[in-house]
Structure formats: structure tokens, C-alpha cells
Deep mutational scan, measured.
Amino acid sequence: FKEKSRGVLREWYAHNPYPSPREKRELAEATGLTTTQVSNWFKNRRQRDR
């Protein structure tokens, strides 16, 4: 994950830790990652924050 991608994901996570499938697609396009990578990032981040 590039620093820029992580920044976008972290910013989004601060507002909404549970993005919808459509939001995940938009995030994937914005970061250049796949929707699966975006989903996993959020899942792992939520797990880490428990």
C-alpha cells in the first residue's frame, strides 16, 4: 500500500469504518487498489481497533 492510498483510506475510516460496496468501489478507483484490497484493509483496521 502506498502512503497516499493509506492516507485516503485512513481519512475515510475516521468518518465511516463500514463503507458500502459502492463506496468501496469508489475508494478502489481513488487509491488504485482492488475492491478486495480495500475491503481487507477496512476489515483488518476494524480488527486492530478492537
Rank of each mutant, 00 (worst) to 15 (best):
F1I: 07
F1G: 07
K2W: 07
K2D: 12
K2Y: 15
K2T: 13
E3M: 13
E3P: 04
E3G: 07
E3S: 09
E3V: 05
E3Y: 11
E3Q: 04
K4M: 09
K4C: 13
K4S: 14
K4T: 14
K4E: 13
S5C: 06
S5G: 09
S5A: 12
R6L: 15
R6K: 09
R6T: 13
R6C: 12
R6H: 07
R6Q: 12
R6F: 07
G7K: 12
G7D: 15
G7L: 15
G7F: 13
G7Q: 15
G7V: 14
G7E: 15
G7C: 13
G7P: 07
V8N: 07
V8I: 15
V8Q: 08
V8H: 07
V8E: 09
L9N: 05
R10F: 03
R10Y: 12
R10A: 12
R10V: 14
E11T: 09
E11D: 09
E11I: 01
E11N: 08
W12R: 07
Y13N: 02
Y13E: 04
Y13Q: 00
Y13I: 01
A14R: 08
A14W: 06
A14N: 08
A14P: 02
A14G: 12
A14T: 10
A14V: 12
H15A: 13
H15C: 12
H15P: 01
H15Y: 10
H15F: 07
H15D: 14
N16L: 01
N16G: 05
N16S: 08
N16E: 11
N16C: 14
N16P: 03
P17D: 05
P17M: 12
P17Q: 13
P17I: 15
Y18A: 10
Y18S: 09
Y18T: 09
Y18I: 06
Y18W: 08
P19D: 01
P19M: 02
P19L: 04
P19A: 03
P19I: 05
P19E: 02
S20V: 09
S20R: 03
S20T: 10
S20A: 06
S20Q: 08
S20G: 10
P21S: 08
P21C: 10
P21T: 12
P21R: 09
P21I: 09
R22W: 14
R22H: 15
R22F: 15
R22E: 15
R22I: 15
R22S: 15
E23N: 01
K24E: 15
K24A: 12
K24M: 14
K24L: 14
K24I: 11
R25L: 14
R25K: 06
E26D: 10
E26W: 06
E26R: 02
E26H: 04
L27D: 07
L27T: 01
L27F: 01
L27A: 00
A28G: 05
A28N: 01
A28D: 04
A28Q: 00
E29Q: 06
E29H: 02
E29S: 07
E29V: 04
E29N: 06
E29T: 03
A30P: 01
A30K: 15
A30Y: 11
A30L: 10
A30T: 13
A30M: 09
T31C: 10
T31R: 00
T31H: 03
T31K: 04
T31S: 11
T31P: 00
T31E: 07
T31W: 05
T31D: 00
G32N: 09
G32D: 08
G32Y: 05
G32L: 05
G32S: 04
L33A: 03
L33N: 02
L33Y: 06
L33E: 06
L33D: 04
L33P: 00
L33F: 08
L33V: 06
T34E: 09
T34P: 05
T34S: 12
T35Q: 13
T35F: 15
T35R: 10
T36R: 14
T36A: 07
T36P: 09
T36F: 05
Q37F: 10
Q37E: 08
Q37R: 07
Q37C: 03
Q37K: 11
Q37W: 04
Q37Y: 07
Q37N: 06
V38S: 00
V38A: 01
V38C: 01
V38T: 03
S39E: 14
N40H: 10
N40V: 10
N40Q: 06
W41M: 01
W41P: 01
W41C: 02
W41A: 05
W41K: 02
W41T: 01
W41I: 06
F42G: 03
F42R: 02
F42D: 01
K43P: 03
K43A: 14
K43H: 10
K43N: 13
K43V: 09
N44V: 05
N44C: 12
R45H: 14
R45M: 09
R45Q: 11
R45W: 04
R45E: 15
R45G: 04
R45F: 06
R46L: 07
Q47G: 12
Q47T: 09
Q47N: 15
Q47R: 15
R48G: 12
R48A: 12
R48Y: 13
R48K: 13
D49F: 04
D49C: 02
D49K: 01
D49W: 01
D49H: 04
D49I: 05
R50M: 10
R50D: 11
